[in-house]
């Protein structure tokens, strides 16, 4: 199941229009989600308060005193029909971010599990994880959490059965075909394979994280020594 022929639109609560673009995570779907996200942001800015991308969907929060859900829905359908006229790159020019990661050991407590699950050595897992260019799917869950895809199926280990209550900020994890970075300390259930020393989210900056949906991320393996040297460097200030 890929992209739905027509998006499934569900209005709720008197101020939300939810748009399902596809049934499950696939990178061709992610591209359509991003296109719709940036199109709605650009074209419906007057009546819309906030546009929030999900993994396979977009939520549009509108101001019911300026418009109504029916009108927002038909405008979204119209944007969807015309989406072929515009290139994603014209809506959002993707930036590429390099993220240094110290893999395994205390930084990646689930590395032995992922290696066992995939039948590889830890070094091979590092090589497989850091040899792809990932697409940013969305940000969310907690401030600055970055969802990326698509992970090589060979290392696409499932989530933990029981989430951890406390995960250090900067932790890099795997959940099936997605990889993610915890922007701040939080609970979570992804399999942790490493950690970046970069500050991913700084609320005293605006935007607090420079990464947007559609951007690209490459992971660069570093040593514990390099990790120490890079602690606190803001992700936007680290060279790619």
């Amino acid at each position: 199941m890929g992209v739905l022929p027509e998006p499934r639109i569900l209005r709720s609560g008197g101020y939300v229009v939810h748009v399902d673009v596809c049934e499950e995570l696939r990178m061709d779907c992610v591209e359509e989600v991003h296109k719709l996200y940036y199109l709605v942001k650009r074209e419906l800015a007057d009546a819309v308060e906030e546009v929030v991308p999900g993994v396979t969907s977009v939520a549009v929060i509108y101001e019911p005193r300026r418009t109504d859900g029916r009108a927002v829905e038909s405008e979204i359908r119209e944007l969807w029909r015309r989406r072929g006229d515009v290139e994603l790159a014209d809506l959002h020019r993707p930036r590429r971010f390099a993220i240094p990661v110290c893999y395994g050991g205390e930084f990646g407590p689930d590395m032995p599990f992922v290696a066992g699950w995939s039948g590889m050595s830890e070094e091979e897992v590092v090589r497989v994880h850091s040899s792809r260019v990932y697409r940013v799917i969305t940000l969310g869950f907690t401030p600055g959490f970055v969802y990326m895809g698509e992970v090589d199926p060979a290392i696409a280990a499932p989530r933990l059965e029981t989430p951890r209550t406390r995960i250090p900020r900067g932790s890099v994890g795997i959940a099936g075909r997605m990889t993610g970075i915890y922007g701040l300390e939080s609970p979570g259930g992804w399999r942790l394979i490493g950690r970046t020393p970069l500050t991913m989210f700084d609320y005293r900056r605006d935007p607090p994280i420079p990464i947007s949906p559609g951007d690209e991320v490459v992971f660069k393996p570093i040593s514990p020594g390099e990790f120490e040297r890079l602690v606190g460097v803001f992700v936007g200030d680290y060279g790619s």
């Binding site: 929030v52 940000l139 969310g140 907690t142 935007p207 949906p213």
Partner: peptide, 10 residues
């Protein structure tokens, strides 16, 4: 705090 849900801020 409005406008930052897209970067995960409630």
């Amino acid at each position: 705090r409005r406008g930052y849900r897209a970067v995960g801020v409630p």
